[in-house]
């Protein structure tokens, strides 16, 4: 009986896989919706910065629209924004921050507390476009890992960032950050930052899958720690899931889709999830979907009730 049950389950999973692979053209386009949206926000923000710096975009009159870059900026001359990790490094380097920076930090930090920390990575960070391309190409070329690095290495690099900032008296990550380099050099002129990006691209493509964003980047690590408390999360409905595993294949952080934990919690709990939306757009059974954390428990209880589990 249990054998037969297992067999049935496998058939269900195969059917789900089939659905993923036999999407119609429009279905396929629809499954890319979050990728399109993410590129839209990433490039849109970049464009706002660029337009303000180069074409003097103003709103209201005589006020720069969005001045600065991802490290720190000011929106419509009113709202300061600042990267909390950069500010923390500067503080540790021995500089007392001004109120304006602290308000900016609070706004950005609060925002990512709401939408989950690593939403920054998938929706804002420009390097994500480079690493996504490398990841996609790697999948197409079917390149195997050269070696393995533990995904927790990034937390050690984050710790090193803070310690070295205090020791050297300069913001340790900001001075080498490819994230900063890319954004800065697109907005304020070309340096050799593209070489660092090329290095990341090749590292991700040929050496380690999701190597930079998923293993090394201390900024991602920082937002992972913040992300645990995030409000926007991917909800998991165990009653409809057929265990086809297609989600884990597209996920850049597949450890967050640990099935046992998903079933326990009813949502993707790990802060390492970047809310990129690949799995939610792909899941043929609709078992994974974006939701607000307080609503998830309710939803899952209802789903369990309706199928009699």
């Amino acid at each position: 009986m249990s054998d037969l049950g297992g067999y049935d389950a496998r058939l269900d999973a195969l059917a789900s896989t089939e659905k993923v692979h036999n999407l119609s053209f429009t279905g396929k386009l629809w499954s890319w919706r979050y990728i399109v949206l993410r590129r839209f926000t990433q490039l849109g923000i970049l464009l706002l910065f660029y337009g303000t710096a180069h074409w003097a975009w103003q709103w209201p009159e005589k006020t720069p629209l969005l001045s600065g870059n991802l490290s720190a900026s000011e929106f419509i001359g009113l709202i300061p924004l600042a990267d909390p990790l950069a500010a923390l490094q500067i503080f540790l380097a021995g500089h007392v921050l001004r109120q304006e920076t602290l308000i900016g930090v609070a706004i950005v930090f609060g925002f990512y507390l709401l939408v989950s920390g690593r939403t920054f990575c998938a929706w804002m960070c420009p390097v994500n476009m480079v690493t996504d391309l490398a990841g996609w190409l790697r999948g197409k070329l079917d390149i195997r890992a050269l070696f393995h690095v533990h995904r927790n290495v990034r937390y050690f690099i984050l710790a090193a960032t803070l310690i070295l900032s205090a020791l050297t008296g300069v913001a340790a990550f900001e001075w080498v950050s490819p994230v900063g380099m890319m954004h800065r050099e697109i907005i304020f002129g070309i340096g050799f930052g593209f070489l660092a990006l090329l290095a990341i691209f090749l590292f991700d493509l040929l050496i380690l899958k999701n190597g930079w964003c998923g293993h090394l980047c201390p900024l991602g690590a920082f937002w992972s720690l913040v992300g645990k408390a995030g409000l926007v999360r991917v909800r998991f409905d165990k009653t409809s899931c057929t265990h086809c595993g297609e989600c884990a294949k597209v996920c850049p952080e597949p450890q967050v889709l640990n099935l046992k934990k998903l079933e326990e919690r009813g949502l993707v709990f790990s802060g390492e999830c970047s809310n990129c939306g690949r799995c939610t757009a792909l899941c043929p059974e609709g078992s994974l979907a974006f939701d607000l954390r307080p609503l998830i428990r309710q939803h899952n209880a209802r789903a369990a009730g309706s199928t009699g589990h």
């Binding site: 303000t52 710096a53 500067i90 500089h95 008296g169 900063g180 380099m181 002129g189």
Partner: peptide, 26 residues
């Protein structure tokens, strides 16, 4: 060196395009 957050808001603020940010590798 410790305090600059490398945001470039001074560059945007300068009406004469005097200020520039140094690129990496310079």
């Amino acid at each position: 060196n410790a305090a600059c957050i490398k945001c470039g808001q001074c560059v945007v603020g300068c009406p004469y395009h005097t200020l520039k940010l140094s690129g990496s590798g310079s």
